[in-house]
Nucleic acid binder design. Sequence first.
DNA 1: GTGACCACCTGGCCGC
DNA 2: TGCGGCCAGGTGGTCA
Length: 279
Amino acid sequence: MPELPEVETVRNTLKKLILNKTIRDIDVFYEKMIRNVDVDTFKEKLVNKTLTDIRRYGKHLVFQYEDVLLISHLRMEGKYFIKDLDLPREKHEHVIFYFKDGTTLRYNDTRKFGTFDLSTEELLFTTSPVAKLGYEPFEKGLTVPYLYKKLEKKSIAIKSALLDQTIITGLGNIYVDEVLFLSKIHPETESKTLTKKQLKQVIQNSLIVLEKAIKLGGTTIRSYTSSLGVTGRFQNELFVHTKVGEQCLVCNTVIEKIKVNGRGTYYCPECQKKNTKKK
DNA sequence: GTGACCACCTGGCCGC
DNA sequence: TGCGGCCAGGTGGTCA
């Protein structure tokens, strides 16, 4: 599923291919995807607008169409494809943007989980989905004191806390497993018991994992593919995620899979121990 | 304020 | 072969 590195790959690919294109028309085949406006308003605001930039905040893509911002979240299986006008619509293409040059941008989403919101520069950081996001690992604001403050009263598992986009934005199920492995922290460890040294490890390893994943184009597990079928190579670098039954590359212990708050979670029971003392 | 649970949605897989 | 049930999971909403 697309996480921050995959979304960054999509952004870079789309930026090369559709920047400066002007929308002629839009077809919406699954109206529930458009969240904060009705479909008529959605079209009215975007038609005849030219794409001037594509930004990314966490896992959200923000298409800047002059004064209108189109916020797209790919959720589980969202993908963009650029196709010629005359190609027939495929089964899971739910939104099609028709450009004036005869090409189309098609949003394809098998599970229909993806979302679109409209916003403006003024409202982006106050009322849009982007406004709720915490710091990305790349941002200077993500510091040990910040994370300590956010977690000091939380009894939830650290795995759940790192998936909370209002604390750290950009980490998803795959990368949280990898970050916790590299940090030698058991995924069920109570968040408030983490030491500052461990939090430092979490921040450093988040940065390492995400930077490497972006460099390799993200992770291709099951369905994820970025625009035009570009696939990532980070799955070859995974230590624990999806490795259940395989030996840990560090200590040779068999990797286990558990559920943490309903999420499939992979870890090494030898390398990743729960904290025994409160800090 | 916090945390647990559920709904959203469909394809793939498994057992019968 | 066909069918039913379960699983996958990011996010938002609800409820205790």
